[in-house]
Design a protein around this nucleic acid. Sequence first.
DNA 1: GTAGGTGCAAAGAGTTTGCATACGC
DNA 2: GCGTATGCAAACTCTTTGCACCTAC
Lengths: 140, 140
Amino acid sequence: MLAKYQNWLRDHGLKATKNRMMMLEVLDEDHKFLSAEEIYQSLIEKASNLSLSTVYRSMESLVEVGLVSPVNLETSKQTLYELSHTEHAHHLICMSCQKVIHVHGCPVASYEKQIAKEHQFTVREHKLELYGYCQECSTK
Amino acid sequence: MLAKYQNWLRDHGLKATKNRMMMLEVLDEDHKFLSAEEIYQSLIEKASNLSLSTVYRSMESLVEVGLVSPVNLETSKQTLYELSHTEHAHHLICMSCQKVIHVHGCPVASYEKQIAKEHQFTVREHKLELYGYCQECSTK
DNA sequence: GTAGGTGCAAAGAGTTTGCATACGC
DNA sequence: GCGTATGCAAACTCTTTGCACCTAC
């Protein structure tokens, strides 16, 4: 898994530094979108001299080579990051615990075509997010 | 139109001040989402002593009483504002000129139910945005 | 007249940048 | 060894807040 990332980075002219590998690991483990600050916090123990600006700069690079995707949710004013998924997916976002559930499959494709025709609009991408409460938080 | 807003404000314990009415007017006229800064800029001529913080504070109040909705688009890091629509709508966002086209009708309803069942997730609201290029910008 | 609204300036959050040093390849 | 990556501090942008004055009702 990590070796894959290493190669991908090198193939795209980026060095596979400790910091970057650790950040990718954190993003890989956690099932939330993470803010730069959160990534920083979860690494500061292992890498005591890591700096927040390195996290920002790394996210920028990783986004550029397509390993990471940035997201702006309505529930947070910070930019959040997740590993890019090759498969198109949508998100269920828990408004209580911020957990993000990925859902594959997409109900929008045919709608997109219809819209494109009706409004002479060239659709490049779309974003569908469902906000609500996950099983655990609803039962509380 | 404006009288409606006046009553709505008063009914919700807010005063119908000149500033607020002008802001609602700007939001009503323009067919983009507007940032606080843009609202400020389009009013500064008529209201030379308006301050940006008043725009922020007004948006906050107007959002609270439901006249205005805040939006975080992927294309802007600022919070943008639009008049709340009683009718559920989705958005086509032009990545070139930032124009926003409102589209009524929603393909997500049945999908939502299916998801709710599959993932034991209580959906409260959703957001669907299509990013691409409007007719004018595509032909350029 | 009074409570809520506003302008101004200052403070806060989140993010970016300049520069000298360190590290991957 | 070369060039990218990093740490630190400072700058920057967007947004919020404190306080004295003002205005809608």
